[in-house]
Design a protein around this nucleic acid. Sequence first.
DNA 1: CTCAGAAAGTAGACGCTGTCAACTAGATGA
DNA 2: TCATCTAGTTGACAGCGTCTACTTTCTGAG
Lengths: 200, 200
Amino acid sequence: MPTKKKQSLKQALVEQAFSVIEEKGVEHLSLREVARRLGVSHQAPYKHFPSRDHILAAVVARCFAEFAQHLSSRPSCNDPFDDLHKMGLAYLEFAQKFPLQYRLMFNTALPDGTAHPEMLAQAQFAFSILHDKLGEMTLKDPDHPIRDPVKHDAIYIWSALHGLASLMQSDVTSTLGLSNDEKAVAVERLMRRMSLSIAP
Amino acid sequence: MPTKKKQSLKQALVEQAFSVIEEKGVEHLSLREVARRLGVSHQAPYKHFPSRDHILAAVVARCFAEFAQHLSSRPSCNDPFDDLHKMGLAYLEFAQKFPLQYRLMFNTALPDGTAHPEMLAQAQFAFSILHDKLGEMTLKDPDHPIRDPVKHDAIYIWSALHGLASLMQSDVTSTLGLSNDEKAVAVERLMRRMSLSIAP
DNA sequence: CTCAGAAAGTAGACGCTGTCAACTAGATGA
DNA sequence: TCATCTAGTTGACAGCGTCTACTTTCTGAG
């Protein structure tokens, strides 16, 4: 199995890179460390990725893929408003359950995004899920009083969700002395306001 | 002037560090580069900061101070709702005008926040401005129908603002093909919704 | 089957980095 | 005056990303 073994190191590199990030933080990700853990030479990774940034981009792309799957894994019922509410909760749940992945997606500054097309594609796909769900809503209700394009609603919702998710996992919460209960209240309030803003 | 000269290098280090970050990105900030630019030896910075992270924390603290000043520089009128609206715009304006500073404040992962008390204090002060403004609002209107503590409103508002600011300066906007006009519309919509949520 | 060539992996080197240790010159203060 | 503290210097060390050159292994056309 040549192709299988060929790809196996590439995949193993991405997985080990994530493990290293998990243990030491993204800024201490070292290709040599990854290679050492996999028992290969320090140059082996360069046969599969042109640079350290490209491995990092692959890790981020995998996070986006997991994120998209998490968002769309919820069963969709006939009520698109309920669907959207569930998707919002799923969004926040992902950020809470997988804070590292979330930070990697939205906090990682790759020098040039266009240099990592796979990562970009995964990110676009993840956003399309939210966008499409909003599209369903307005389609199912032709008299929906939203005048601006769906895109702007998507932006608003994504903004609110992302802002809350970021805040909840930053040090700010401990700085403000927020208990878990208060966090839950904040989530519930935000979701309610979001629904009110979108609902007819 | 011993004390003056003593402090001058410390201050110069922080300024030059910011310049380096500006040019090369925060992950390429190098103490040796900073020292080189200031014409001192590569060990001189260590007489003023214990490590690279501590210089970075000082840079971030300065960003928080500038941010707080920007937020509170707006003249406050007698209408606290109008004040809040202006402060929200000021928030977004800062993020747009000084994206690097904004990212440094909210995207920089320092290993241990408690190790940098000055930075933490600046961050808390910045948030207190928003919090106090909300406090004014509820105080001036005793019948204000907000049942939950001010803190939760502050969290909601900060979430929405931070989310939008982050989104606006990420690559997502170009990915979605957002024009500047559409960005402005998104800002206006968010501000309107925010006001509606808070207003009685 | 053979064998040229591509692909995967190894080894060594270079310049860069953060940081530790040891040293020097100058200011401070009892 | 002289011991001490402070700011700054030089030198060293290990680790890093990445370039070049080498070997091994696999592949696919003749």
